[in-house]
């Protein structure tokens, strides 16, 4: 129990850092209705760019910005695959993600590159968890506020309309392809920012650090929705719900690790958790549909 309580601040810090990714996944999955797998690659790209920039002597804030820009380019690639070449959403993301592995190897020069908090000025580090929580928390809040403003603008409303009803959007003069690309660019910029902070937090960028990121992002979005869906109606609060979902996810992970789950089994565990949460609405619908039918027969 004591070990678990000791692990909690670390879970919160990790959750807040991955919360930025969760906001990005919220934009594609919930706002645009686009399951974007690019983030597995763009998160690692963000980590790689940030670490190489910082070790090259760049200011960490500037490095974070560079990382986000690199992630945005990845999102742009996926967006163009989909809108210009007509490749289905999931496949477009998989293609970019696969290609990014090589790109990330080139950026890093090897599969793993360390960045020590002793040598460089970093934004977050697991050596200073409290500060990491505050920094990552401020980032999450600032990003949420900026996005809340953005989705209230004419352009942001066009992105939302595209995700909600592309037929209506086109009938109202919205270029739905542009909006999809824009959404993917923003989302992957956030994924890369999340990766940039996570690489600093753990003290290294790894070419495999993004593996399964989409599943963690989805888990965060879905947990946030299940827990807060009924009480959070405001758009900004819904994005924050995804961040809190990420924190809850990492707390659950800390608990199951304490209970003796091997770290090797974590990905399997995550996949099953997400599958379960995705299945609930479907199974619920089926169950209720059957009940209605039975009721009808009884009346007849």
């Amino acid at each position: 129990m004591a070990a678990l309580i000791n692990a909690l601040p670390g879970s919160v810090a990790q959750g807040l850092i991955w919360g930025i990714l969760a906001i990005g996944v919220y934009i594609t999955y919930k706002v645009l209705d686009y399951a974007d797998l690019t983030v597995d690659g763009s998160l690692a790209t963000g980590g790689a760019v940030a670490v190489m920039c910082i070790t090259g002597g760049m200011n960490p804030y500037l490095a974070l910005l560079m990382a986000s820009l690199a992630g945005m380019l990845a999102g742009l690639a996926t967006g163009l695959f989909h809108t210009v070449f007509g490749i289905p959403p999931i496949l477009s993301g998989i293609l970019t993600q696969l290609g990014l592995y090589s790109v990330n190897m080139h950026i890093l020069g090897k599969s793993n590159q360390a960045v020590s908090v002793d040598q460089y000025q970093l934004l977050v580090s697991l050596r200073y968890i409290q500060e990491a929580c505050i920094t990552a928390g401020v980032f999450c809040l600032a990003i949420t506020l900026i996005l809340y403003w953005f989705f209230g603008t004419e352009l942001g409303a066009a992105v939302r309309a595209t995700g909600c009803n592309p037929n209506m959007a086109r009938a109202q003069g919205i270029n739905t392809n542009h909006q999809k690309v824009l959404g993917l660019v923003i989302s992957n910029g956030l994924a890369a920012a999340s990766g940039a902070l996570y690489a600093q937090y753990q003290g290294s960028a790894d070419v495999n650090m993004g593996r399964g990121a989409i599943v963690i992002g989805l888990a965060a979005v879905i947990i946030g929705e299940v827990v807060f869906g009924k009480i959070f109606h405001n758009f900004a609060l819904r994005m924050l719900a995804a961040v809190i979902g990420a924190i809850l996810y990492y707390i659950v992970i800390a608990i199951v690790l304490q209970l003796g789950l091997s770290t090797n089994d974590l990905k399997l565990f995550s996949a099953l958790i997400v599958a379960l949460f995705l299945a609930i609405p479907h199974l619920k619908g089926k169950y209720f549909a059957k009940r209605v039918q039975k009721g009808g027969n009884a009346d007849a």
Partner: peptide, 30 residues
């Protein structure tokens, strides 16, 4: 279902329609 965005509210739908044929940028959505 086709003519409106179900997850957006009435005024937002109208505001989107009011901007049909106009450039959309970072001005207020409504």
């Amino acid at each position: 279902m086709t003519g409106t965005a179900a997850d957006m509210n009435i005024e937002e739908n109208l505001a989107i329609a009011a901007r049909r044929g106009k450039r959309r940028f970072l001005g207020w959505g409504i």
